[in-house]
Amino acid sequence: MARGNTRQRIQDVALELFAEQGYDKTSLREIAERLDVTKAALYYHFKTKEDILIGLFQDLTRPMDELIAWAHAQPRTLETRRETLRRYQLALRDATPLYRFMQENQATVRELSVGLTFKERMLELTDLVQEPDFAIVDRVRCISAIFTLHAGTFHMENVEGDPEEKHEAVLEVALDLLTQAHHA
């Protein structure tokens, strides 16, 4: 098996176990057992649980980094802000297991280096969807648009209906918030 595939399998299984029993209660031994590999084989790829988590964050947040770089290169217009939200929703959907883990393990994530870098990304993203001269109520609308995408990604799965329609509805509400801020 190629190194990349083994590394990916380790990350996937670790994320499953972190989700099932919590990051703190999961050991490298348990990850190795579920993968049916030796602990030494696991150490070849990752020395610690935090290394696994850092690898997951790097793989799954790369689209977020690319989005931030893209948005910085665009004119600061309403359409750019709207497209930033559209692209962010896609990134969220692709990384749902990691974001769910973060939501359910906020205290742990805050203590890890990945928590700080994620917080920095979120602050940068919220800056990109608003203007410094916006009134406070409009800044709240812009930040709420991002968190509408978060809530929609994770909580709408418990709501009856077609998944695609739900994603479109969540995006529509987020875009409405952004547009209200622009027109206020």
Rank of each mutant, 00 (worst) to 15 (best):
I10T: 00
Q11C: 00
D12S: 06
D12R: 05
A14P: 00
L17F: 09
L17D: 05
L17M: 12
D24M: 06
L28P: 04
E30M: 15
E30I: 13
E30S: 13
E30K: 12
A32H: 12
L35E: 04
D36M: 06
D36H: 11
V37P: 03
K39R: 12
A41I: 06
L42H: 01
Y43H: 08
H45K: 02
K47D: 01
K49H: 05
K49L: 06
E50G: 00
G55N: 00
G55S: 00
G55M: 00
L56C: 08
P63S: 06
M64Y: 13
I68S: 15
P75Q: 13
T77V: 07
T77N: 06
E83Q: 05
L85F: 05
R87L: 02
R87C: 02
Y88N: 05
L92H: 03
D94F: 03
D94V: 11
T96I: 14
P97I: 06
L98M: 07
Y99K: 12
R100F: 05
R100P: 03
F101C: 07
F101Q: 03
Q106A: 14
Q106W: 03
Q106K: 15
A107N: 01
V109W: 00
V109D: 02
R110T: 14
E111A: 09
E111H: 04
L112A: 11
G115D: 04
L116T: 12
T117F: 05
F118N: 15
R121G: 15
M122P: 09
M122Y: 07
L123H: 13
L125S: 15
D127N: 14
D127S: 12
V129E: 01
E131R: 14
E131S: 12
D133K: 08
A135L: 06
I136E: 15
I136V: 07
V140Y: 11
R141Y: 04
C142T: 09
